[in-house]
């Protein structure tokens, strides 16, 4: 089953207990999420959405760092619970984190991370690190540039490229990049996202790109899923979803990307989000409290996924 799929999430839910005292509540940080990535062609799939909407939890479920409360995940046709923690899987699915300064210990030379990873996954000839050299070359760095350097001696953009290079040593099929550019300047972001594009096109690597930077998502990805309080509210091709968003939350998200143009300022006020736990535990549609197009049914009944214009939209407007 699922032999032509790289990754399948089938109705995956993750429940957390949050808070203490009077704000204590059970939330579905990931709620009945389903999607698939094909083995071929490789794809960049973006997960976007407000802070606290469950994006990192999806990443942790795919990496096997958290187990689903219900539902199943398959990687290359096999159930994830059989693969978790196995060398082959760790080698094939590599994470990239938000803050490169936390990925690397400040007291350890950057090159040592490469050498350790290469030694534990391959058997390099003594004192030689061909995989390190190859992966550094892929991200546009050279061994000389990281030689004897500590993390503090590199720029944020350089260090993030180094952390991607380290993930590439094992020649993975899938990268899970959780906000890889949010800590680095816009001017350096392009170097990272251009790298992702090249990895997909030239090395056939698929990437799950988690971000709230919709401009870079538009630039590099094929498909996008918009998350809101644990749910996928809209999934489709990135061009369709961002050029013409259908779900009122996707519309809010898209119109909230600030334009780098003083003639194009926000003029309308938006309703600000309520306490997170309150939205998570809401009946009906999770967006009903803030939605400019809310209807009576939205308050009491959860919308299904409706297929509209080649995408799925979870909103009563499209019944």
């Amino acid at each position: 089953m699922n032999n032509d799929k790289l990754l399948v999430l089938d109705n995956v839910t993750k429940v957390f207990t949050k808070g203490q005292g009077f704000v204590k509540s059970k939330i579905e940080a990931v709620s009945r999420v389903s999607f698939e990535l094909e083995l071929q062609p490789p794809e960049i799939f973006t997960l976007a959405g407000e802070s606290g909407s469950g994006k990192s939890t999806v990443a942790k479920l795919i990496l096997g760092f958290e187990a689903p409360t219900s539902g199943s995940i398959y990687y290359k046709g096999q159930p994830l619970e059989h693969l978790k923690g196995k060398r082959e899987f760790i080698r094939d699915v590599q994470p990239i984190f938000q803050n490169p300064f936390e990925t690397f210990n400040p007291l350890k030379k950057v090159q040592n991370y490469f050498h350790d990873t290469e030694r534990s996954f391959g058997s390099p000839p003594r004192g030689q690190y061909p995989l390190t050299e190859r992966s550094l070359e892929l991200v546009g760095l050279t061994a000389a540039e990281i030689k004897d350097k500590y993390p503090s001696e590199m720029s944020g953009g350089q260090l993030q490229r180094a952390s991607i290079a380290r993930a590439l040593i094992t020649n993975p099929s899938l990268l899970i990049a959780d906000e890889p550019v949010s800590m680095i300047d816009a001017s350096l972001r392009m170097s990272v996202v251009n790298l992702f594009k090249r990895l997909k096109e030239e090395q056939g690597v698929s990437i799950i790109y988690i971000t709230h930077d919709l401009a870079t998502a538009y630039y590099i990805s094929d498909r996008i899923a918009i998350m809101l309080r644990g749910q996928f509210v809209e999934i489709g091709s990135v061009k369709k979803v961002l050029d013409n968003p259908l779900h009122p939350y996707s519309q809010l998200l898209q119109s909230s990307v600030p334009a780098p143009d003083p003639r194009d300022r926000w003029t309308e006020d938006i309703a600000l989000s309520d306490l997170e736990a309150r939205e998570y535990t809401r009946q009906g549609c999770k967006f009903a409290g803030r939605c400019p197009r809310v209807m009576e049914i939205c308050q009491r009944q959860e919308p299904e996924h409706y297929r509209v214009d080649d995408r799925l939209v979870k909103c009563h407007l499209y019944r």
Partner: peptide, 23 residues
Amino acid sequence: SMLLNSLPRVGDSSPRASAPGAP
């Protein structure tokens, strides 16, 4: 100019070079 040109925009996926060098 370099700062402004390095900004990608929604609606534009034409190839865009990264800013050269670092501060």
